[in-house]
Amino acid sequence: MGYIISLGVGFGVGLLYWLLKVQSPAPPLIALAGLLGMVLGEHAIPVVKSQLFAQTTVQSAAPAPAAAPKTSAVQDATKQGS
Rank of each mutant, 00 (worst) to 15 (best):
G2S: 01
G2H: 00
G8C: 08
G8S: 13
V9Q: 09
G10K: 02
F11T: 15
F11E: 11
V13R: 08
G14N: 09
Y17N: 06
Y17R: 00
Y17W: 08
W18D: 14
W18P: 01
L19V: 13
K21H: 10
V22E: 12
Q23K: 10
S24A: 12
P25H: 05
P25W: 07
P27K: 09
P28D: 08
P28G: 09
L29K: 05
L29V: 12
L29I: 11
L29R: 07
I30H: 05
A31Q: 03
L32C: 06
A33G: 12
A33N: 13
A33I: 15
L35D: 14
L36N: 14
L36P: 05
V39Q: 10
V39E: 15
L40Q: 11
G41T: 11
G41W: 06
H43D: 13
A44E: 10
P46R: 02
V47C: 00
V47I: 14
S50M: 04
S50N: 04
L52Y: 02
F53R: 02
F53M: 05
A54I: 01
Q55G: 08
T56N: 11
T56F: 06
T57D: 09
V58A: 05
Q59R: 10
S60K: 01
A62Q: 03
P63Q: 09
P63G: 01
P63R: 00
P63W: 02
A64E: 14
A64C: 07
P65W: 03
A66K: 12
A66Y: 02
A66N: 07
A68C: 04
K70H: 05
K70E: 13
T71Y: 10
S72V: 07
A73V: 15
A73W: 09
V74W: 10
Q75A: 09
A77M: 02
K79S: 06
Q80K: 13
Q80M: 06
Q80H: 05
Q80C: 01
G81D: 07
S82I: 10
S82V: 14
S82T: 04
